[in-house]
Amino acid sequence: MMGATLQARDGFAIRAENVSRHFQMGQTLIRAVDEVTLSVRKGEFVGLLGSSGSGKSTLLNLMAGLDHPTSGTMIAEGRNLAAMSSRELARFRNQTVGIVFQAFNLLPRMTLEENVELPLRLAEVDRGERAARVREVLERVHLEKRSTHRPGELSGGEQQRAAIARALVNHPTILYADEPTGNLDSATGGEILNLLWEINQTLAATIVLVTHEQPLAERFAGRIAFMKDGKLVAA
């Protein structure tokens, strides 16, 4: 409730305030994310660019509630992630957030529909409702005809579309995509970004896209942020 009011007031989907994430590797301290302050408004499509090792994935994991910052606060939909219990964080990842990875990360022995159904199982959605929701998102990514196939039987682009369907099935308000086109050729990558843009437009979902490819980001993202050595260069 508190979250809803804050969200209504500030209109931000996610806000990072002086967020740092350091890793101690023996003697050296790696500042993977260093004092980053970044606000993403609801419904925004933000592109996060930067060279390899600049800390993009680490920042994304912090925003998705998969990792905890060393310092600073992360406020998502008006709620401080640091104040949440691990169970609440799991629920946050399940209900509020959708994540798409470069490596697709579909479970290989499950069919597409079973993969897409997983977040619904975790959310304890009724069985009767699940089939309809799975069908709805598979239609949105144009995979309804492949629903009983296993990931190995699909092309990379199709797998990534299935992963997007899985990320969408619980109707999240924020979608994080970590180099979703990294394993795809440029034509297929373009399709995937088109799909994300569609989702951003029709579902009003906030999207944070991590990518290496500046032209793609410039074509679809409403705003671009650069990272370098763990710091945000231009927001």
Binding site: A64, L66, S86, R87, A90, R91, F92, R93, N94, Q95, I99, F101, N105, L107, L118, P119, L122, A123, R166, N170
Partner: peptide, 16 residues
């Protein structure tokens, strides 16, 4: 390992 990671990313709690 990876499967457990995916489950957690999709919202599985430790308890699950």
């Amino acid at each position: 390992r990876r499967e457990i990671g995916v489950l957690k990313a999709l919202g599985a709690a430790d308890q699950d």
